[in-house]
Amino acid sequence: MISGLRFVTLSRAVCLVALGASLIIPDARAADALTGTLKKIKETGTITLGYRESSVPFSYIDEKQKAVGYSIDICARIVDALQKDLGLAKMEVRYNPVTSATRIPLMANDTIDLECGSTTNNLDREKQVGFSTTIFLTANRFISKRSAKLKTLQDLKGKTIVGTSGTTNIKQINELNTKGALGMTIIPAKDHAEAFLMLETDRAVAFVMDDVVLAGLAAGAKTPDEYEISADALSIEPYAIMMRKDDPPFKAAVDGVINNLYKSGEINHIYAKWFEAPIPPRSINMHLPMSAAFKRVVAKPTDSGDPAAYAGN
């Protein structure tokens, strides 16, 4: 290389060096600049997605025991974009099941890189983990059997209630229980399916969870008409993809993909596929058009963990 340079004119040499530098430097800068999760993905050529087993239609397993859902679809877009950005010819995508109880420690100990489920972004959790742009909005309500005629929180007085362990919902019902001296017995279940099972088998009279998850579970039940979701909403819950905290480049990459989905309108297709059309495994249809509040998020993406940020105006 150097011996070759001797024979060329100075100006040409400058040109060559400049060209070479322009070819090398961006690459070198990218490799140096990569930190956190992006660096990990680039080095290992793998990304691990955490998925839920029964968060219909966000993240659940279909009849072939494969993780599918609205959040999984969004994560698939993120994975594709990351592969392109990092210039990886091949990227292995691993899936690791998580529960509400295991998702945060598994994120902290690097077992999963992205959690694609139905996780509420709130200020408490923001101290521990990072969240993407909000991907859905829901409210905390309870589901019960129609025959039990439970309409409001007061109706639950002295009854056995089930919640999914580790969720904001069970935390909230616990607080309300103490504050209102309602004397409820609150059972934590491992996941939504197990919690719904408690309701189905009358082990609990009501199941406290985000309304959309409840609607998904009820739609998939043996007798969907038997159940009723309360009109009373206990709170607003913004869902987001969870990642490790303090990893701005990774978050920027993830948010960029989601914001593009919003801007291009592609989100409407993904949304319609999971909320307004028959979904596996049993071709149920949630019949849930996009809410006005979520349309506002799509128009003006936000990653706020503060419910107040989503109030209509």
């Binding site: 099941p97 529960t99 295991t102 491992k190 996941d191 399916a193 189905e200």
Partner: peptide, 21 residues
């Protein structure tokens, strides 16, 4: 307890999915 699919895990997943516990 970790949602891993062993024999019982598989059985309970089917049980939950199909309501055939």
């Amino acid at each position: 307890v970790l949602s891993i699919t062993d024999f019982l895990g598989a059985a309970s997943k089917v049980a939950h999915r199909d309501g055939r516990l």
